[in-house]
Design a protein around this nucleic acid. Structure first.
Lengths: 254, 254
DNA sequence: CGAGACTTTGACCGTAGTCAATTTATGTGG
DNA sequence: CCACATAAATTGACTACGGTCAAAGTCTCG
């Protein structure tokens, strides 16, 4: 299996699936031209949107991986989300400073979201962007559940399953395998664990034959089994685990 | 100090600060009438928006506390956020089922967000709602940091500080004190901890004289000190803790 | 080949979870 | 107003998941 070249670049034959922008190649020439004109390259490791710009703007990831992070005063770091090709994010003026920052995990190409919504089919594209934004929010909830209620093993699997599905949707999964540009430290900061524990958890998962990770690629077979184990729900399935609410009311006592 | 009556009801003299809808009382009579006509009451413990309705809609909380939750197949529960008067949330068809559910923690009044944006000053109000939505997202990030990177003590304080600020903004803090309708179990499910540990953490905080919690009220003095300790940043301050990015690159090895 | 980034390992520690029992509200009916 | 039932808070004993520290191994790349 080849799997070479830059990580996170959508293969040409799948660009139609870009971004949840389902009809990318059907867009009129004008918009495509405007769109590609706004494309900007960011090298791996650089942070996005900091200094110069004073305004807010929305970007679309064209290729590469981005991490959305916050760094605490004492150096602790939390990664909120990974942005993959087709994802939308808003860049604030002082990006890396304070609340939220975008960091390129690979070489990245980003484009201006606004440029996409002008012209002919603008509304339809805008709707796609809105859908992308909605999905992004949904993933924030998944992230909260992961770090709030799952064990280390479950967290790792759950995240890998999410990445699998998202990459699959844009044609970046081949033979149950995808490329992943994350160091164990990044993994740790995303999942609220220490590097050492991530390392040991991965080893355990490998030993148990549940996943194949290493050298920048991940292979997942037995997706169903893993999903059940890691409380993972793919975007599509709105499976219904109901349950009546539990305790409510006033915190009494001191 | 009295502090009686329903929890989470905005005092009449402060309704102008409602919801980040900064000029609530300046809205034209028509909208106010339409708005109040859509108000709906939900008893404590009930879940919101489940069965009947097939469509999505956005609601505004008028009074009371709501928890936004997910329950896993095995019963583990995670609370994503608390909705206070003035907050906006979207209610999906199958609310409690599956992905996300809204549960009333107190008696609650909710209204249709759409009803707010019709008519004369509609756009201005819509802008306020958008701002509320933006803040809500910001709080999701705070929540991720809390459960991902803070210790139990920090989590509790951080959450209390957030609630303080939000309640203060709508006039529900008096003499550094506010009413809180949360059981320790709810607290635990919000902060990704066990009930027992929440209990012990609260005791420790009390012993150290950092907070006064009990009987449904919380008092916070020394907010600055607590904020620093718990890595809490109030909405307003965009304090700048910078820091150059750290490691990136491909997960090598197996 | 050497330097730096990344992964892996071992020893040890500590925060937080679990289980089970007890105490303290809160609320209801008589 | 009291007895009882139930929800919520608290405690103790014990466990374990995950963190920390420090050293050693691997990769990668110039």
């Amino acid at each position: 299996m080849p799997m070479s070249g830059e990580v996170g670049v959508i293969p040409r034959e799948r660009q139609s699936a870009f971004a949840g922008l389902n009809d990318f190649r059907q867009m009129d020439v004008g918009r495509v031209r405007t769109f590609w004109r706004t494309v900007e390259r960011v090298p791996a490791g650089a942070s996005i949107g900091a200094e110069n710009e004073a305004r807010k703007r929305q970007i679309v990831v064209v290729s590469g991986w981005i991490a959305e992070t916050r760094i605490l005063p004492d150096g602790r770091r939390q990664i909120f989300a990974f942005l993959l090709p087709g994802d939308v994010a808003s860049v604030t003026s002082a990006s890396n400073v304070g609340l939220r920052g975008l960091v390129a995990l690979t070489n990245v190409e980003i484009a201006d979201a606004a440029a996409l919504t002008v012209g002919d089919q603008g509304e339809r594209v805008a709707a796609s962007l809105n859908e992308a934004i909605r999905q992004r929010e949904e993933r924030l909830f998944d992230q909260i559940v992961r770090i709030g209620r799952l064990t280390a093993k479950e967290r790792v699997l759950n995240l890998l399953l999410e990445l699998y599905d998202r990459l699959d949707a844009i044609g970046l999964v081949k033979e149950n395998t995808f490329r992943i540009p994350l160091t164990q430290e990044v993994f740790a900061d995303a999942l609220g664990l220490s590097v050492v524990h991530i390392n040991r958890t991965l080893q355990q998962l490998r030993r148990e034959g549940l996943v194949t990770v290493g050298r920048g690629t991940v292979t997942l077979t037995q997706r169903h089994k893993l999903a059940a184990f890691a409380c993972y729900q793919s975007e599509s399935q709105a499976a219904s685990f109901d349950r009546t609410s539990r305790r409510v009311g006033g915190m009494s006592q001191g």
